Simulated assay, not measured.
Amino acid sequence: MYFLFVVMNDSVKLFVLYLTGGCALPLLFRVLMGDVQGIIEKQTVNDTVNVRGSSSYYENYHSMQEIYRWMEAVVKVHSDLLQKIYIGSSYEKRPLYVLKEKSKNAIWIDCGIHAREWISPAFCLWFIGHVSTQSHLITRDRTMTTLLEHFDFYVMPVINVDGYAYTWSHPSVRSPFLKGCPGASHFECQETYCGPYPESEPEVKAVARFIRDHKDTIKAYITMHSYSQLVLFPYSYTMNKSKDHEDLAQKAAKAIKRTTWKTYRPGAGAQTIYLAPGGSDDWAYDLGIKYSFTFELRDTGTYGFLLPPREIKPTCLEALSAVKEIAQHVLQNL
């Protein structure tokens, strides 16, 4: 069987050719993205055009180099609220930083574990931009202000800094973050390569060490990914389901629905999508962090990992509403 693309009058028709009989049968299809290269160029063109801290700045994707510069600037401007914590370095010796919103008990949010999921770091930048400007706004986010009075927010904008930097010039990921279980591969060229042993990568080791050191004060773990519009909770490495999450995941999904009318499906990872070993939410939950979630942000497949910049703001708004829902629940159950 062969796939044959035929261009006819500026349209593309797809035929499946069978060797037996030599007949050609049409196969129904639809084009999701007509100009992939154009979409990629639009994602990178506004990296440093907008003033840092402006609302438009947070509605564009930014390179790893620019994210480092942004971290320096935002911590300097909001030194009364923000602290930048160095936790280690990557395989390629890029520094790994966590931004901390100063308070008491903590909630951890990380982004950019998977390098090609650009909407994930975009949310972390947007989140910091949102919370750090609350004291300067006439109309404040009262819920967020209350949460900041009770919680530290440890926010790591990009975990896989090498991979993220690489995706700005190449279409693939540099380093895996899985451990060996069913669903992972032991072949280095596979996307699901599990690595030679658990926490083999310096980025993973640095993050794991930091979270272990603070596990008694971190009350919730939230990791941002894309895509599929899901609110996932443990477990992903087994078909077993944790007991602490289902109702809260449904509340988070409802908060998103109220905010942007987008539907996010809640559920345990393995039961909702597929068995996936090495999930950081599973690890955090088994470490003792009671509330642990993975968000799969927009969309559901039209653009996939090439989510246009115009989708950043609404995606961040709906994700923020879910984060606040989780944080409020944690606060009420301390």
Rank of each mutant, 00 (worst) to 15 (best):
S54W: 13
T133Y: 05
E66M: 00
W283R: 02
L17Q: 06
C194R: 02
F293C: 08
S132N: 03
R258L: 15
S242H: 10
L137K: 13
H245M: 10
L320G: 03
E199W: 06
I85W: 09
M64Q: 07
N60C: 06
F123R: 03
M8G: 01
F233S: 01
Y291T: 05
A24K: 13
V6N: 13
E59F: 00
G53R: 12
Y18F: 14
I113V: 14
G163V: 01
F295Y: 15
I211L: 11
Y221P: 05
I119M: 04
Q134D: 09
I85Y: 02
P234G: 05
H225Q: 13
G112V: 02
H150T: 09
F151P: 02
V51T: 15
I138V: 14
Y61G: 00
L96K: 05
K42M: 12
V7F: 15
K262D: 13
Y164D: 01
P121L: 03
F293E: 04
M144T: 07
L81Q: 14
F123P: 03
D216I: 06
F127Y: 08
H130C: 01
T302P: 03
P26N: 03
K42F: 02
L230E: 06
F123D: 03
L334E: 10
K243D: 12
Q37K: 15
K257T: 05
K290C: 02
T192K: 11
Y264G: 07
S120T: 03
P26T: 03
Q271G: 11
L331H: 14
D299N: 07
K262C: 11
L320C: 10
A122W: 11
Q332H: 12
L125E: 08
V75N: 10
E311Q: 15
A220R: 11
Y291M: 01
C181D: 06
I87M: 11
A24I: 14
D216Y: 13
V6A: 03
T260M: 02
D152P: 02
Q229H: 09
D281M: 06
T217G: 00
V75C: 15
A184T: 11
V173E: 11
T146W: 00
V131C: 06
I218E: 08
P308K: 03
G183I: 05
R265N: 12
P198R: 02
K215V: 10
M224R: 06
F210L: 13
L32V: 00
K76F: 12
L81I: 14
Y91T: 09
